[in-house]
Nucleic acid binder design. Structure first.
Lengths: 108, 108
DNA sequence: CGTGTAAGGAATTCTGACACG
DNA sequence: CGTGTAAGGAATTCTGACACG
């Protein structure tokens, strides 16, 4: 149910590669984490690991920073976005649930 | 024309992550490269970088090794596979070319 | 043939801090 | 506030070689 995720959300990219992909400095990338805009995983040794989704998100963040939006403001925007998305998710599931109840379970 | 590739073929994964994803030792991963079964890119400093496709390929290789197939044999199989695929690609393009010639250019 | 390992070095990453503003 | 930088240390990766078989 739901394509969920495959490669795009696997946290496998080290910060040096992210630097190359985004053009951001490691300092910037770590700072955005400090401001709770991005959430890499960690290797056993402590190295940060990012996903392709994270890379995309970092580029969006960079754009907003360039537009003069502060990290605090960006964070609020992102939280609002997340809330909207989870509500959509709930609606989708409720509708799907009703369909299943009426017509039986089928994939998708 | 052709979905080509997106994330799956981007070489962004370091050998330590590949080790975790595949369960292979770094020694094994490097050895399969030495035997020309896998072709990582390199960072400026010399570190190997793999794609998700590489990870999948490594797991197939590992299976064959377990079945007692030698690297040299695996390499021959892979070359044969590649030849078949590129021939399919050529046929596909020729047919597409004829269609374009008769009915004009359109996407896909 | 395929893999483990110890060796030494180089590249990569980490944190906390100072600086500027 | 957002970012650069030098500092010191730790984790990561690299190569070439010896070993076993």
């Amino acid at each position: 149910m739901g394509n969920d995720f495959s490669y795009k959300d696997k946290k496998v990219i080290t910060i040096g590669i992210v630097r190359e992909l985004t053009g951001l400095s490691e300092r910037q990338i770590r700072y955005y984490e400090e401001r709770k805009l991005i959430f890499p995983e960690r290797s056993p040794g402590g190295s940060r690991k990012y996903s392709f989704s994270d890379v995309e998100l970092l580029m969006e963040i960079a754009n907003k920073i360039e537009d003069g939006i502060q990290t605090h403001e960006i964070r609020k925007q992102m939280l609002k976005e997340q809330k909207k998305q989870s509500q959509d998710e709930i609606r989708r599931k409720m509708i799907q649930g009703q369909l299943n109840a009426q017509f039986g379970i089928r994939k998708n």
